[in-house]
C-alpha cells in the first residue's frame, strides 16, 4: 500500500484493536455464567412442563395431539404478548434471560415489543411494519430453509 492509500484507510490496525480489546477485557466484569444458565434452565424447563401439562389436559378432552399442540402454542404466544403489553415481560426476561427468550414466548415478545414501541408512527407503517422488524428475519430464514427442505425431500422420494 502506498502512503497515500494508507492515509485514506486511516482505520485502527487490527493488532492494535485486538490488544486494546484484550486490555479492556480485564476491566470488564464477566456475566454470571452459572447463575444465568441455572435461571434459564429452570424457567425454560418449567415453561415446557406447563405446556406439556396443558397439552395433556386438552388431549384428555378428546383433541388430537396435533391440534392440542397448536392450541398450546397459540396460548403461549398470546400469554407472552399480553405480558409484554402489560410491561411485565421485560422484567421476567431480565431475570430468566434465555429461559423465556428461547421458548416460543421470546418470538412472540420480539414481535409485539417493537410494534408497541412504534405505535405512534401509525397503524400501517408503525405497528404494521414493526411487528416484523425483529421477527421478520426469523420468518424469512425459517420459511426459506423449510421450503428448501421440502423441495429436497420432494425430489428424493
Amino acid at each position: 500500500m502506498t502512503s497515500k492509500e494508507k492515509e485514506l484507510n486511516n482505520k485502527p490496525e487490527k493488532e492494535v484493536a485486538k490488544k486494546y480489546e484484550q486490555y479492556v477485557k480485564q476491566f470488564t466484569p464477566r456475566p454470571k455464567y452459572f447463575s444465568n444458565s441455572l435461571k434459564a434452565f429452570f424457567v425454560g424447563g418449567l415453561i415446557c412442563i406447563a405446556a406439556l401439562y396443558v397439552q395433556n389436559l386438552l388431549m384428555d378432552k378428546g383433541l388430537s395431539e396435533k391440534n392440542a399442540g397448536a392450541y398450546v402454542t397459540v396460548f403461549l404466544i398470546c400469554l407472552a404478548q399480553l405480558l409484554t403489553g402489560l410491561g411485565v415481560f421485560d422484567t421476567i426476561g431480565k431475570f430468566a434471560g434465555a429461559g423465556v427468550f428461547v421458548p416460543i414466548t421470546g418470538f412472540a415478545n420480539s414481535m409485539v415489543a417493537p410494534a408497541i414501541e412504534y405505535k405512534k408512527e401509525g397503524p400501517v407503517l408503525g405497528i404494521g411494519a414493526k411487528l416484523f422488524s425483529l421477527a421478520g428475519p426469523v420468518l424469512v430464514c425459517g420459511i426459506t430453509v423449510s421450503a428448501i427442505i421440502g423441495i429436497i425431500s420432494y425430489f428424493m422420494q
Binding site: 425454560g44 427468550f101 428461547v102
Partner: peptide, 8 residues
C-alpha cells in the same frame, strides 16, 4: 427444554 435455554 431447559437444556436448550441454557445453550441460548
Amino acid at each position: 427444554g431447559g437444556g436448550m435455554c441454557v445453550i441460548g
